[in-house]
Simulated assay, not measured.
Amino acid sequence: MQKSIFITGGASGIGRAIAQHFAREGWLVGIADRNAQGLEETKGLLPEGQCHTYTFDVTDRAGWEAALGDFAGKAGGRINVLANNAGLPSGGPLTEITHEELDLLLDVNLRAVFYGAKAAFEHLKAAAPDACLLNTASAAAIYGVANQSVYGATKAGVRSMTESLEAEWAVHGIKVRSIMPSFIDTPLLQNPPNRSRNTTIREAVVKAGFEFTPVEEVAREAWNAVHGNDTHKIIGKTAKKMKRAAKWFPGYLRRRAIALAEAHERAEGRPAKG
């Protein structure tokens, strides 16, 4: 039977790259996003008849149930992988983030991940032992970075949730994995981190001297995560350096975090202290 994967955030970036990679391997792909045009663009990159699109908001529980139920029906009554990938990159100093922005980030990056896991459980269980919940966390979950207090907290939550569900769902034959990439040059980085800033996230990352990890590398590691035994896949040079430094050189990470904060301030034309 053809294997299947359902991917949120499939209109661009990591979600699109994962869809392309799994489709090349012959999998049936379901992609979801709020961006209907982006979904159609992704679908156009995949083999005909191999992709189904779903436009809904991941914070909508009913949307999850309807989309997964429909896709499972098209996939023979089961789903092998749910790629819980949808997320927002908003950030900036906590004092600048509005309560509305804070709530949205928590809702999309954390609450919706739990919604997806709960909605997908029975579909994954039907595919066990060839089943996996794949969560997109981030290198920001390794060590706190300036201007990413809320974002990093959501991704640390995803990391913790992954470890907990790995233990809970092992008895059902379901793997639970996360991918933890460093900075990815996706369309989302073309936006400012919050409403009070003008400089894009991408500009600040470049000024701070961080490199970008190719989105194709993330997709390859997503495939390896689904088929491997590592709970977390650390992806990209920056992420791997952070993992080593968090253990052996936490002072270095603190300095790098400050460098990123100062890069944001300089990009906005504000004097950086210190």
Rank of each mutant, 00 (worst) to 15 (best):
K74N: 07
A246V: 05
V215C: 08
F71T: 00
L110K: 00
F114V: 14
R61L: 12
G236A: 04
K74H: 13
L188P: 07
I18R: 03
R202A: 14
A245T: 00
R177N: 05
R34N: 15
K118C: 13
G49F: 09
G44D: 08
N194Q: 04
A75S: 12
A263F: 11
L94S: 11
V29T: 06
I179S: 02
T8H: 03
I201Y: 09
E211Q: 11
A246D: 09
R244K: 12
R254T: 08
Q37E: 15
N198F: 11
I97A: 13
N224E: 15
R220F: 10
A36N: 09
E122G: 01
D60A: 03
F183W: 15
K240G: 00
A120D: 07
L45Q: 11
R34W: 08
A19K: 02
A11I: 05
I179L: 08
G228V: 06
D185M: 08
G77F: 06
D103K: 07
A225D: 06
M1A: 12
A204G: 12
K273C: 06
H227K: 11
A170Q: 13
G9M: 04
T200S: 15
H123W: 13
N35S: 10
P192G: 02
A261I: 02
E168L: 03
A261L: 12
Y115V: 00
G15Y: 09
W169P: 00
A219T: 02
A263M: 09
L189P: 05
T154N: 10
W64N: 06
N135C: 09
G49K: 04
A156I: 00
F121C: 01
L106P: 06
F210N: 10
L28S: 12
V215R: 08
A156G: 12
R197E: 10
S164I: 14
A62I: 09
T231N: 03
A208R: 04
F22N: 03
M180K: 07
L188Q: 13
K233M: 15
M161P: 10
G274Q: 09
F6M: 10
R24A: 15
N35V: 09
I179R: 01
E101P: 05
A72C: 08
G173T: 01
E221V: 01
P181M: 08
A225Y: 02
H52L: 13
A72W: 07
E262D: 15
V205C: 08
S164G: 13
N198I: 07
L253Y: 03
A66D: 14
G15V: 05
G44C: 05
R34I: 15
G10T: 02
F249W: 14
R195W: 08
A259C: 05
Y252Q: 14
I79Q: 06
R266N: 11
Y115S: 10
S138H: 06
L88T: 03
W27D: 08
F114E: 10
T238I: 13
L133M: 09
